[in-house]
């Protein structure tokens, strides 16, 4: 069944954990956009949602760091962070070992990927789920791209991986949605936390909406680090969703800097029917 939904959203832990410290007008606008994304996702009646994340040393460390990993379990626990710190209670999200197995087998035809029968969700997945599937009633297929521990997954390979994911999603009979999560420019958890390069973000999102492969791959890790911080490495998740959208045109529904959340909080989707 062709992919039914493709979008991206922010996942910063401050979105839930430091909610009371944000400008309430901007914060509530962002939450409303998240709520609309949940509605739009539910309208497509997905059987499972693939969450393409950039996890932060919760499951993967430099002793064995995969460029790509896909979960293959019937459930996933989270958050791995202190629930009070993240302001998200402990949860068990449903997975689907069956769907995962078939997606992974298809992806492996054209891309190397690790599979994981165990995965503890950190804020990179927990925050999006908190807004998009608050009742934890939609099976989740977690995907990780190494955006944290250099050498990082090359951008071109993130793109190719997105194409492989799309082929896999289209090959199964279930209705599959895909959501990428990450920051754009940000310097998370460093002394520069709160610094946001808004101009860089808007330029990147323009490229993402046009879904121009060459423009989206026209970055180096060095230029991203200089202009967008180490958090900018997470654009890999956005690139993967762009590739999975196969040329579809995107719309940014919300993008505003919220410094206490450390990012330009973003909600955007592709028009797969267009």
């Amino acid at each position: 069944m062709p992919l039914v939904f493709a979008g991206v959203c922010s996942h910063a832990p401050g979105i839930t954990g430091r909610a009371d410290q944000a400008d309430p007008v901007v914060r509530d606008g962002f939450y409303a956009a998240f709520e609309q994304m949940r509605h739009d996702l539910e309208t497509t009646k997905p059987d499972a949602v693939v969450i393409v994340a950039a996890e932060h040393f919760a499951n993967f460390f430099m002793n064995n760091m995969p460029s790509f990993a896909i979960g293959m379990a019937d459930f996933y626990d989270g958050p791995i962070e202190d629930p009070d710190w993240l302001a998200i209670d402990k949860f068990r999200a449903p997975g689907s070992r069956d769907i995962s197995t078939r997606l992974i087998a298809e992806v492996m035809e054209t891309a190397d990927v690790s599979y994981c029968e165990e995965w503890k969700f950190d804020h990179g997945i927990a925050v999006p789920l908190h807004f998009l599937t608050p009742n934890f009633d939609l099976p989740v297929i977690p995907v990780n791209i190494n955006c944290q521990g250099p050498p990082l997954t090359p951008l071109a390979r993130a793109w190719n991986f997105g194409e492989a994911l799309r082929r896999a999603c289209d090959a199964v009979p279930e209705r599959i949605a895909i959501v990428g999560t990450g920051g754009i420019s940000h310097w998370p958890a460093t002394p520069d936390s709160g610094k946001i390069n808004e101009a860089w973000d808007r330029d990147f999102l323009d490229r993402w909406c046009r879904n121009d492969r060459d423009d989206l791959l026209d970055y180096t890790d060095e230029s991203v680090y200089a202009d967008a911080g180490q958090g900018g490495f997470e654009i890999r998740t956005f690139l993967t969703v762009a590739a999975a959208a196969q040329g579809a045109i995107g719309t940014v529904h919300f993008c505003e800097p919220i410094p206490i959340f450390a990012v330009s909080c973003t909600i955007a989707t592709y028009d797969l029917a267009g």
Binding site: S193, G194, K195, I196, A199, W200, A226, P259
Partner: peptide, 14 residues
């Protein structure tokens, strides 16, 4: 020096 026009950094918020 890297064309960061519009960067946000609010001392009280970071």
């Amino acid at each position: 020096q890297n064309s960061a026009v519009g960067q946000q950094n609010t001392n009280g918020d970071r």
